[in-house]
Design a protein around this nucleic acid. Sequence first.
DNA 1: GAAGGGCCTTTGAG
DNA 2: ACTCAAAGGCCCT
Length: 292
Amino acid sequence: MREPSIDIKTEDAVFLAVNQPLDLRATIDSGQVFRWRWDGDWCYGVIGEHAYSMRQADGGLLVRSSATSQMEVSGPVADFLRLDDDLEDMLRDLANDTPLANAVKRWQGLRILRQDPWECLVGFVCSQVSNIPRISRNMASVAEAYGERVELDGRFLHRFPGAERLAAAGEDGLFALGLGFRARYLAKIADNVANGDVDLAALRLAPYGEAKAALTQMKGIGDKVADCVLLFSLDKMEGFPIDRWVMRALVDWYGHEEKARYGDLLSWAQERWGNRAGYVQQYLFHHRRLMG
DNA sequence: GAAGGGCCTTTGAG
DNA sequence: ACTCAAAGGCCCT
């Protein structure tokens, strides 16, 4: 039996009104981000320079942060959660799409996040032939080894180290953190980003195809990882990452062949769902992974 | 150009 | 102890 207690963390928390469907738990736990941690109803993580904790509350969110001004608290959080997306509008017609309707109904409020592109890129290069718990460990190792510390609620979080840092760490430094064969890719990718060969910020403004080409030209980034980065950090809502789970959904629920080519499935999904494809993918992924 | 197979590290589950 | 799977991709036939 739990003792009634005052939640001291709600003191001096900022209230952020949310007039959008939001399931914070499902969103944070849907394999988009790998460095957020739960402590009861509060989740802790880093957005940009600052550490944040947030908790779902009636009509919105309670947010605490190492940032000092209220603007620095609500702005980045609203941006991160893509509260500018009209989720109801995005998902409205999908109730007629039977297999999808179940997922949408079950996980209503699962949102696509708008992450920092560099951290997102590293996370999904790490995701190759891995699993979410391990990716999380890898990302924590990288941040603890090379990122600056930020304090919040007496706990220490880490900013994600920039490309220059990881380029300096090199393949050996990254391999030592347990990244396996991914260390080689990441060292080179870090180099490309650090020296300006690839400008991630610029890709946010570029069209989908152009941005994807810029990403996949780097070794270690194929169709799938690129689509994750495009969707989760570069505002390309037509991105449709197809991993094992989404593939199973496409085969079992939409009659595709197991051997279908990535590009053909991608075109099919984008034609069917347009700029909602990214959201559709996230609901399919989450539902299939957790419900089987 | 397309398709298939081996290989790349590590971890945990069964 | 051994096999399989895990938000894949590269490289060589």
